[in-house]
Amino acid sequence: MESRENLEEKYREALSNYLKEQTEQALYQGQKYSRKTIEHKISPEEIISFHKSTLMDTYEDLPDEVLHSLDFLLEVMMGYGIAYREHQNLKHLQQELKSEIEIAANVQHTLLGTNIPKVKDLEIGAISVPARHMNGDYYHFVQDENQCVGVAIADVIGKGIPAALCMSMIKYAMDSLPDHRHFPKSVLESLNRVVERNVDPSMFITMFYGLFDPETHIFSYASAGHEPGFYYDADKKEFTDLTAKGLLLGVEKKTQYEQYEKYVAPGDMIVLMSDGVTECRTSEGFIERKTLIEFIEKNMHLSAQEMVNNIYKQLEKMQHFQLRDDFTLIILKRNV
């Protein structure tokens, strides 16, 4: 590594060469030198003082005005020097924050992790991709002692770290629900009370909660302002909106949710998503729900997991690989 004295010497050499002969080559030395000064954190005012001492050593009869002007320039450049050092410090801090956020994202991933359960007669596929480091979307599966499987999909209004922190709270609240109370309506009603009490008044959560009973093949569900999913009727070969009315979590303390039921026939499908899926923006505008249905149809021959993976890849491509919002897609498919 080169020392400072060494760099002063280098400057002297490069400048003298250029003063002797104004060639491209000599000028290029200056360019190379400037990269080296950045590497060694030499400030702009130091370079001017190198310049001045080189001139003084080279020319004995240098007019005082030139020297004074260099002192003046040095003073002016001081501000840049300070700004440069600040910039360096910020760069360093940013690096630190970045790695901290990466660690937080990993912690979140572990905290919110959920396993896709094995359910009789039901195939499940799920994917969730954050737009930035941390995910404000959340999905969760629970299986109770009667083998009924509960599926939750939620989206915090807001993005990034605050949203992600909020999700951890939801997960905790869901884990502490009593085992016998996984009816969609009561799940949403108790979570609503938790969110209303605990979260910042401008932060809200949309959630869809469904419960599939593998014995009766009934899917019961309720929604708190969540983007409606689709229901695929294999017999009619037809998609319909899985509409459920209900207010966002955290707005009104005493919100009651309506619970709906559907008999799931062999080959039928339930598609759940976050609004990141329908808010995908392409150069031609938003993705219509119709387009999404076309994507689903195109992949219908695949397994549920392959379906969600493929649909995600296709939507990502349409948006030129730039997600604007967190993206979550879940498909439940009753085996034929």
């Binding site: 989206d155 209004i157 807001g158 993005k159 008044p201 401008s202 932060m203 809200f204 949309t206 966002l248 707005v251 609004d275 808010e279 604007r324 919002d325």
Partner: peptide
Amino acid sequence: MDSTGLGVFVGLFKS
């Protein structure tokens, strides 16, 4: 408008 905007209006409404 995305859901962040929605959050602003709900907050305003409550206030």
